[in-house]
Simulated scan of single mutants.
Amino acid sequence: MNEFATMLVVTTVAGAITGVGAIPVFVRATVSHRTYDAALGLAAGIMIAASVFGLILPGIEQGTLVAVMSGVFLGGFVLLGGNRLIPHLHARYVGWRREGGQWGWERGTAAGGDGSMESNGPAESSETEDPAIASRARRALLIGTAIVLHNAPEGLAMGVAFASGLEDVALLLAVVIGLQNVPDGFAFAVPFGETGLSNGRVLVYTTLSGLLPQVSAAVVGFYLVSFATGIFPIAAGFAAGAMMAVVFREMIPSSHGHGYADAATAAFLVGFALLVVVDELLVV
């Protein structure tokens, strides 16, 4: 296979792993906050190390520090801009926090331990619509939007690495992103399962939430670097900046506040160290 075909296969597998996160929902298994927070911390540590050792340092080697840092700031601020513009929900401690755009909802209150959010209803609603189902469906859609929004930078990173001939880096990123996609899939599947959708549909939607944005962004990153000579340092910095913004803006806050911050922090350190060791072994 050529590099483009290899990239498609690898990014498809990494994105499809998101569906694994839906499995606990099907068997009605409970995932403790400690486990979930530690999983997010582990993924966050791996992603930060991958951003530095897999994207920023190779970018500096092939370009200039200014180009890479410009990309880092650009990628981070584009991600933050998307957070402000696109309506979505993020997990925050024991509830959900609305972010981005014009909601068209009156202010609601975040509920407690079950992590649900009650709203006063949309500005316009149908009399025949079940309010409880409608509320759950809107929440699921907005949580899904957040996950899809944050999957794109990861796909971009893989596409950039493959197009630049850094296949070892690209495969390492794919493993990292695949691991991180599992808790993402769980966060996506739980609210969609509450809407009454069949298990099959929840699995399909969960899988597509990782598959479509990551493969699409990977194709964009691949052709961006392929057609524009010398753009790798900026593109690598952009992907790294966006990934780091996702970690510090979403993953770390979501893994704290349940009383297991120490477990999440310890897992972060383990994830960071694990990626550094694997990276050194690949180099050797």
Rank of each mutant, 00 (worst) to 15 (best):
V204E: 11
V148C: 08
V182P: 05
S226H: 03
I56P: 07
L40T: 06
V52W: 06
L74P: 06
F4E: 02
A140D: 11
A39V: 10
L173E: 02
L79Y: 11
S216C: 10
A43T: 02
T229C: 09
L65N: 10
V31T: 05
A91T: 15
A132N: 11
L8T: 01
R28S: 13
P153V: 06
S125L: 14
A123L: 13
V225T: 13
I133R: 14
P191H: 11
L173F: 06
M158K: 00
G185V: 01
R249C: 10
M244R: 07
G71H: 07
V202G: 08
M158E: 03
T195K: 08
L224N: 07
V52I: 08
F232A: 00
E280N: 08
L85E: 10
V202A: 08
E118L: 15
L166E: 01
D262V: 09
P253Q: 01
V72H: 02
P253W: 01
R98G: 14
G193E: 11
V190T: 14
R97C: 09
A217G: 03
A16P: 06
A50K: 06
L208I: 09
F268N: 02
G82M: 14
F238I: 04
A261G: 12
A217Y: 03
T6H: 11
S51C: 02
S216N: 05
F188H: 13
L224P: 01
A91R: 15
D279Y: 12
P87R: 00
S125R: 10
A43S: 12
S198I: 09
R139G: 15
A228T: 14
N120R: 15
F162S: 00
S254V: 05
P253E: 03
T145F: 06
P233A: 02
V20P: 07
V219C: 05
E194D: 15
A239Y: 01
S51M: 10
G75K: 05
L149H: 10
I234H: 15
T145H: 07
F26E: 09
F222N: 02
M1K: 03
R92S: 14
H150W: 07
A91H: 15
T30M: 06
